[in-house]
């Protein structure tokens, strides 16, 4: 390949970079504009600039939304990883009757549209008091993210050499000890990948969150619901400054996580789908 072709391809990569990153330049610049400047001027670089919008975000209790989302996503992740890695290990390694039927069932659940749960779960949650509760959200999230967790982890467990457990068994370990002392630590990268993907999915969920906990940041309203629901001084007008500032507050840590764990995430995403 000639030198010029190489550079041409690098230039084409710039198109991909711009596609992925440009909207964030717009977001950051807009969030920094003062007063009603953001609403009146489409020019990205026209000031005055300042941090007023960010102050506004936290005056509207956004830190409580962050707390709720963090707790709900963390609970979802913990339950999914613990429960899912047991199931994945059984599917990948242990003698199990009707394995194919189980896998088909798990696959079917991964095809469920979440909206099918909204009317019935709302009635159930209402009668047992789980509306506006963390539990009311992380329980269904767990059920929805389990299939993906199981698929990702089954792939990772299947890739660990079987001889290792057999050696442990010969040395006198029970099947359970062989799992949690030998295989589970070796699968840690896979578990970590699954954990990030589940966490992101739970953190981003909007349909159930906006139906089961639409208001009250001090109880269970999550970040996406708050970002969709910010109200301004004028009714019927979305407060562009507050919303964009809140978006930046959320996007920055997520971008850092995505960049830091890039390889893990990509490995997990592809294990959950392409490799099948």
């Amino acid at each position: 390949m000639t030198r010029r072709r190489t550079w041409l391809k690098a230039a084409l990569l710039l198109v991909i970079l711009a596609w992925c990153l440009f909207p964030f330049l717009w977001l950051v610049m807009t969030s920094l504009k003062l007063g009603d400047r953001a609403l009146n001027s489409p020019d990205l670089f026209q000031g005055p600039f300042g941090l007023d919008n960010y102050r506004n975000v936290f005056e509207q209790d956004f830190q409580l939304n962050l707390r709720n989302s963090l707790a709900i996503a963390a609970m979802t992740t913990i339950i999914c990883v613990v429960v899912g890695s047991l199931a994945a290990y059984a599917l990948a390694r242990l003698p199990l009757k009707r394995r194919l039927l189980l896998l088909t069932g798990v696959l079917a659940v991964s095809l469920f549209p979440p909206v099918a749960l909204v009317p019935p779960l709302y009635e159930v949650w209402r009668s047992i008091g789980l509306l506006n509760k963390w539990e009311g959200l992380y329980l269904p999230y767990t059920a929805f993210e389990l299939p993906l967790t199981i698929f990702i982890l089954t792939t990772f467990y299947a890739a660990i050499p079987k001889e290792l457990e057999e050696a442990a068994r010969v040395d006198g370990a029970t099947p359970f000890q062989a799992f949690y002392k030998v295989v589970f630590p070796l699968a840690a990268p896979g578990v970590f990948a699954a954990a990030i993907i589940v966490f992101v999915a739970a953190w981003n969920e909007f349909l159930l969150a906006s139906t089961f906990a639409p208001r009250n940041p001090e109880i269970a309203q999550t970040v996406p619901v708050a970002i969709a629901a910010f109200t301004g001084q004028v009714e019927f007008q979305r407060p562009i400054g507050t919303i964009t500032a809140a978006c930046v507050v959320v996007v920055i840590p997520m971008v850092v996580v995505a960049l830091a764990f890039q390889r893990r995430i990509v490995a997990g995403l592809t294990a959950g789908s392409v490799k099948g």
């Binding site: 991909i16 990153l21 953190w203 981003n204 909007f206 996406p224 996007v251 997520m254 995505a258 995430i265």
Partner: peptide
């Protein structure tokens, strides 16, 4: 390329 994937759809 991961960045659009990672941010919430609401954003």
């Amino acid at each position: 390329i991961l960045i659009p994937w990672v941010i919430p759809t609401v954003i």
